[in-house]
Computed example of a mutant assay.
Amino acid sequence: MTDQHPTKGQLIAGRVLSGLVILFLLFDAGLKLVAPEVAIKYSPPSLGWPLDVPTMTMLGSLLLIPTLLHIWPRTAILGAILITGYLGGAIATHTRIGSPLFSHILFGVYLGLMLWGGLWLRDPRLRALIPLRAGASQ
């Protein structure tokens, strides 16, 4: 395994990607926790989730905790794994109700790619675990 540190460009790109995802996730979790009535008002009734304050609080907590874990470098990979699970639930929910593919169903995939891409660019441990190599594999 290599312990190659990221280049300055990789570090900047990784921080930008990670920052965008983190800001979105914190906003989403915060809205569900601080103003659950607003989150309920703008949630489509067809999602199949109870649209009430306890549900919004639970969903907000289930998103905030892994996002905070992801922010701290020491637990960033654990946070990314837990966020990926949360996003999988969102993808499944939108698939089940027949939401539009590119704007709703795949939105969780887009966030997941940005989340893991940003982490991969910033963290040499993850690059060592998941090396991307050009050309034929050995």
Score class of each variant (00 low, 15 high):
Thr2Val: 10
Leu51Met: 03
Ala39Asn: 07
Arg96Thr: 06
Tyr86Met: 08
Pro6Ala: 07
Gly89Cys: 12
Glu37Cys: 01
Thr67Gly: 06
His5Leu: 15
Leu132Val: 11
Leu64Trp: 08
Pro54Thr: 10
Gly85Lys: 01
Arg133Gly: 02
Leu87Lys: 08
Asp123Arg: 04
Leu78Val: 12
Met58Phe: 12
Pro44Ala: 15
Arg74Ile: 01
Val16Asp: 14
Ile71Cys: 04
Pro54Met: 11
Pro100Asp: 14
Asp3Cys: 01
Pro73Cys: 05
Gly48Lys: 14
Ile105Arg: 03
Ile12Lys: 13
Ser43Met: 15
Gly79Phe: 06
Ile83Trp: 10
Ile97Leu: 14
Leu17Gly: 03
Leu68Ile: 09
Ser61Thr: 14
Ser18Ile: 00
Leu132Gly: 00
Asp3Arg: 08
Gly117Val: 04
Ala92Met: 10
Gly98Met: 07
Thr75Ile: 09
Leu119Asn: 05
Met1Glu: 08
Ile12Phe: 14
Gly108Thr: 03
Ala90Gly: 13
Arg15Lys: 11
Ile130Glu: 01
Gly9Ile: 05
Leu51Val: 00
Leu121Ser: 03
Ala80Ser: 09
Leu126Ile: 10
Arg96Ala: 15
Pro66Ala: 08
His5Glu: 14
Val38Leu: 15
Ala90His: 00
Ser61Gln: 08
Val34Lys: 02
Ile22His: 03
Leu68Thr: 01
Asp52Gln: 05
Leu126Met: 06
Ala29Glu: 04
Met56Tyr: 01
Trp116Ile: 05
Gly88Phe: 10
Pro6Ser: 08
Ser103Glu: 13
Leu115Met: 12
Leu78Ile: 11
Thr7Pro: 05
Thr93His: 11
Leu33Cys: 05
Met1His: 09
Leu11Asn: 11
Arg133Gln: 10
Arg15Gly: 15
Leu20Cys: 12
Ile40His: 00
Leu23Gly: 11
Lys32Ser: 15
Pro44Lys: 14
Arg133Cys: 02
Ile130Tyr: 05
Pro45Cys: 10
Ile97Trp: 14
Thr84Ile: 14
Thr67Pro: 04
Gln138Thr: 14
Phe24Gly: 01
Gln10Arg: 11
Pro131Trp: 06
Ala35Glu: 15
Gly9Asn: 11
Arg125Ile: 02
Ala35Lys: 13
Gly118Ala: 06
His70Trp: 13
Gln10Gly: 05
Thr57Glu: 09
Leu113Arg: 06
Pro73Val: 02
Tyr86Glu: 03
Leu111Ala: 09
Leu111Glu: 01
Trp120Lys: 01
Phe107Arg: 06
Trp120Asp: 01
Thr57Met: 12
Ala39Glu: 06
Leu68His: 07
Ala76Glu: 01
Leu119Trp: 10
Leu26Gly: 04
Asp52Phe: 03
Tyr110Leu: 10
Val38Phe: 15
Trp49Gln: 04
Ile91Gly: 03
Ile77Val: 14
Leu17Ile: 04
Thr75Cys: 13
Gly9Arg: 12
Ile81Met: 12
Ile71Pro: 00
Ile22Cys: 10
Leu68Trp: 10
Lys32Gln: 15
Ile105Met: 05
Ser61His: 09
Gln138Phe: 13
Arg15Pro: 00
Leu25Arg: 02
Gly112Lys: 01
Leu26Arg: 03
Met1Tyr: 08
Tyr86Gly: 00
Thr93Asp: 08
Leu111Pro: 00
Thr75Ala: 13
Val53Leu: 03
Leu115Tyr: 09
Met1Leu: 08
Ile77Thr: 12
Leu62Tyr: 07
Val38Gln: 11
Pro44Trp: 11
